[in-house]
Amino acid sequence: MNNSQSFKESLALDAPDEQLPFILKSLWYDAKGDWKTAHDLVDQLPGSEAAWVHAYLHRKEGDNWNSDYWYAKAKKTRPNISLEAEWESLVTYFLAT
């Protein structure tokens, strides 16, 4: 899977591709409406990239204080874009890395 269109098409499946990294699996579950599984997948992952997805998930949850904490750990600031646009940018970024 190398582009956001094929990633989005995979949302029709019952489970994500086993080859996907945990961060992309998290975003997959988020898009399927399973916030808890999405959060559980990144909750204990180290690094700023996992923190970025963690921040997005808490922003989506509506917990801005917690999301700002995770954005800071990711060396980012909370974006002033829709959640859908942020999800799209995250998927595009992580598919390219």
Rank of each mutant, 00 (worst) to 15 (best):
N3A: 01
N3Q: 03
N3S: 10
Q5M: 06
Q5C: 09
K8A: 09
K8E: 05
A12V: 00
L13H: 09
Q19H: 09
Q19S: 14
I23L: 09
I23W: 00
L24H: 07
S26W: 01
L27T: 06
L27W: 00
W28V: 07
Y29K: 03
A31I: 06
A31C: 12
K32N: 11
W35G: 05
T37K: 10
T37Q: 10
A38Q: 07
A38P: 02
H39C: 10
L41S: 06
L41P: 06
Q44L: 15
Q44V: 12
Q44Y: 08
P46H: 08
P46C: 11
P46G: 08
E49H: 06
E49M: 13
A51S: 15
A51D: 13
W52C: 11
A55I: 02
A55G: 14
L57W: 01
H58E: 15
H58I: 04
H58C: 13
K60M: 12
E61G: 10
G62A: 12
D63C: 13
N64I: 15
W65F: 15
N66K: 10
Y69T: 13
Y71K: 04
Y71R: 05
K73C: 15
K73S: 13
A74H: 04
K75A: 14
K76N: 11
P79Y: 07
L83I: 12
E84F: 05
E84H: 03
S89K: 00
V91A: 02
V91G: 00
A96I: 02
A96E: 04
